[in-house]
């Protein structure tokens, strides 16, 4: 409802004979009026002549608003995404900062200058169900360079890029992946006109962004390396350390996992050397005994060899496996 004002007064404005020279730049609304909108201006006048009065209307001038092609791309992962042995999802947003519905061609480039490694792009998909998270098999997958669906003026669309580490990536090295969005209607220097190709029947005009924008997301490799060292200690039946029949050899296998990642499915295995006999129930992991049978604990031992399943081992961890054999 309009409010009435008590302090209104009449004022006669000066007639502006020329053009206003002072120009103060003024930003348009985020997306501005929609492409195709008609700006129609009509003036009217009233007057008196003697005791009579009259009125008149001007012609109407009409200007159609053309489509401004503008886009903003942002990488949504503020800190590097940790990439291990499984694929990771990088998230980007494409915002249509123009004033008409527009689709954008999406190009993903994993080879950015300064990368420690170039990741392998598996899938590019956009958030077609609008729930903000990647839904494999649900969100629409596009090929590299293909277009999104049309994004409404001032609207945003999330794009997911699923990548994996390449072979040869080293622990703690980083990599960026660049996503570029180009207006399907066209890109170019600001002011470039695509006649008749605008939304709403007008022209399309490239805006300040050049109708193209890009952003990067960063990932950091989190890998582990495993070093295995084997030592032997001999105790002979005479209290010495000579490898004579009847002497017991204690083998020590030290698995050292280093790096920021983790070793997965790590097994320590060894065979019982020829001419020796495994000494039952001597298998130990970090000093704790393991049964020889295949059961709930991590170790299995037999006359032919041992196998200790360490599972997933975080970097910075050392695991020690010992077992005894007797020289025949």
């Amino acid at each position: 409802m309009k409010q009435d004002h008590t302090n209104t007064f009449r004022l006669t404005a000066a007639v502006t004979a020329g053009l206003t020279l002072i120009v103060i730049p003024q930003a348009a609304n985020a997306a501005g009026v929609l492409a195709g909108t008609l700006i129609e201006n009509t003036a009217s006048a009233t007057y008196s002549s003697g005791s009579a009065s009259g009125s008149v209307s001007s012609n109407t001038v009409t200007v159609k608003v053309d489509e401004l092609l503008d886009v903003a791309v942002a990488g949504l992962t503020t800190t590097p995404v940790t990439a291990g042995s499984t694929s990771i999802v990088l998230e980007y947003s494409i915002t249509n900062t123009g004033n008409g519905g527009e689709a954008f061609n999406v190009t993903v480039d994993p080879a950015v200058a300064g990368n420690g490694f170039d990741s392998v792009v598996q899938t590019i998909a956009y958030d077609s169900n609008g729930n903000g998270v990647y839904d494999a098999g649900v969100d629409t997958v596009i090929t590299n360079g293909a277009a999104t669906s049309s994004i409404a003026a001032d609207g945003s669309l999330k794009v997911f890029v699923i990548v994996t580490l390449p072979t040869g990536a080293t622990d703690a090295s980083t990599s960026q992946v660049r996503l570029t969005a180009d207006a399907v209607t066209g890109t170019g220097a600001p002011g470039t006109v695509f006649t008749g190709q605008g939304e709403g029947g007008g022209d399309a005009v490239v805006g300040a962004s050049g109708a193209s924008d890009n952003a990067t997301d960063e990932m950091i490799a989190s890998l582990a390396t495993v070093a295995l060292a084997k030592t032997a200690a001999i105790v002979d039946p005479f209290g010495g350390s000579q490898p004579v029949p009847g002497a017991v050899i204690t083998y020590t296998l030290v698995a050292t996992v280093s790096g920021s990642g983790q070793a997965e499915g790590l097994h320590v295995t060894d065979i019982i050397p020829a001419g020796t006999t495994y000494q039952v129930t001597t298998l130990k992991l970090d000093g704790a005994g393991l049964t020889d049978g295949a059961d709930a604990d991590a170790g299995v031992a037999s006359a032919s060899g041992i196998d200790v399943d360490l599972g997933t081992v975080a970097g910075g961890t050392t695991k020690t496996v010992t077992f005894d054999v007797k020289i025949n």
């Binding site: 120009v23 103060i24 003024q26 009509t42 003036a43 009217s44 007057y47 002549s49 009259g54 608003v65």
Partner: peptide, 19 residues
């Protein structure tokens, strides 16, 4: 002609410039 008053509605898609 006297009391000549010209009225111009501002089209909705535009706004009067500040200057």
């Amino acid at each position: 002609v006297e009391t000549f008053v010209v009225t111009n509605p501002i089209p909705q898609p535009v706004m009067l410039a500040a200057d």
